[in-house]
Design a binder for these strands. Structure first.
Lengths: 197, 197
DNA sequence: CGTTTGTTCGGTCGTACGTACGACCTATTT
DNA sequence: AAATAGGTCGTACGTACGACCGAACAAACG
């Protein structure tokens, strides 16, 4: 029998509800029942579409990763030149903190969970790799860094930039004042000011 | 009646067991019963000494914070001059990843949890503030940064340095190869190379 | 001595969890 | 019309959870 799409795919509804719940209450505080009742679907449907809890949450990570990578890529592709791309990367993280804190919280929470759940770890590690690759491609390639950065592989530099933006985001996220702290982001620009070739 | 210390304070035993469990299995995967049986103490003792789960874990965070701050301070105080202190800070984070991954995992996990539990958040935020203050005091004070860092407050710079080290640590922690990635840490030294006054 | 106060313990309560199962219903296929 | 397959649902199972209680014990003190 063909897969029908009568009105709206239930598995999509479950998935989006799961994302909403997780980004609002956190991994440790969300149950399958929460997601079921919130999405107006029987509990057994969750296991029907996604085997078990880990299966469902794996799919959530997958979704989250896709959104991250897509948005990040769009952001950087829209700018031309390493310097402009750096600026757009910074503003994307600012936007993340200010306008999309839920997505960011989801990211942070899953990063922590991935320390304990091997299958999550694999996914999140992959996400970090893709992100650093993207930074390498867009910002570090065809660019000569300031002199004191000789000897560092572009992979190391990219990892550092991503780490700095991510780590700074977390601090701002936790802090009480979200405004004055934004200055830190800008440091990426000053530190890695690229000279175009 | 006086608090006795017959052989070893049970609350200490509970606490250290809790730390061990948490740094091995993660917040979401540890129950009060786990800690009780692991520490060879009745479950009811946990609530006797620490009100409830949140009370116990609050104490664990407190312990973790103290260790972090102490070790970090010792590390930096042992070096003289901003440049040497920077190097010692870097090597402390390397040491964390390589030799004390449990403590680091504890830190990361609680950071994520603090996104959802207000009392945790307060504590972890305070930890971050203390750490940035320490970086300001030891590395940024009485030091002239390279020219392109004008206009940034020392608080912003400290936050960025901490964020970079923290964010890089997470990536290395998740990655498969722990060796080649250590190069990234060193970037802190090159980027914030201080000229002594 | 007995009382009081701090400590330890086993046990239980109510609830929540993830998962599994069987009964439907509907639409397609034979 | 009968059979089959996809989808939905309610419910129940077994386990685990945090919290709580009352009984026992221990130590100080009158």
């Amino acid at each position: 029998m063909r897969t029908k799409k009568t009105i709206v795919n239930p598995s999509r509804k479950i998935l989006s509800t799961a994302i909403a719940c997780l980004s609002e209450k956190g991994y440790a505080n969300v149950s399958m029942r929460d997601i079921a009742s919130e999405s107006g679907v029987a509990l057994s449907q969750l296991t029907y579409y996604f085997k078990n809890k880990e299966g469902l949450f794996t799919e959530v990570i997958h979704e989250m990763m896709a959104q991250y990578l897509q948005e990040m890529e769009d952001t950087m592709k829209s700018a031309v030149g390493a310097k402009a791309k750096t600026a757009s990367l910074i503003s994307y993280f600012k936007d993340l903190v200010k306008e999309k804190p839920k997505l960011l919280r989801l990211f942070i929470d899953f990063t922590a969970q991935s320390l304990w759940v091997p299958s999550f770890r694999e996914q999140v590690d992959h996400l970090f790799c893709r992100l650093t690759e993207m930074i390498e491609e867009n910002i570090l390639k065809d660019t000569e860094m300031s002199a004191n950065l000789d000897g560092y592989s572009s992979a190391s530099i990219a990892r550092y930039i991503l780490g700095a933006l991510y780590g700074t985001s977390i601090q701002i996220m936790l802090g009480s004042d979200k405004t004055s702290a934004f200055e830190s982001f800008q440091l990426t620009d000053s530190l890695f000011a690229a000279r175009e070739l």
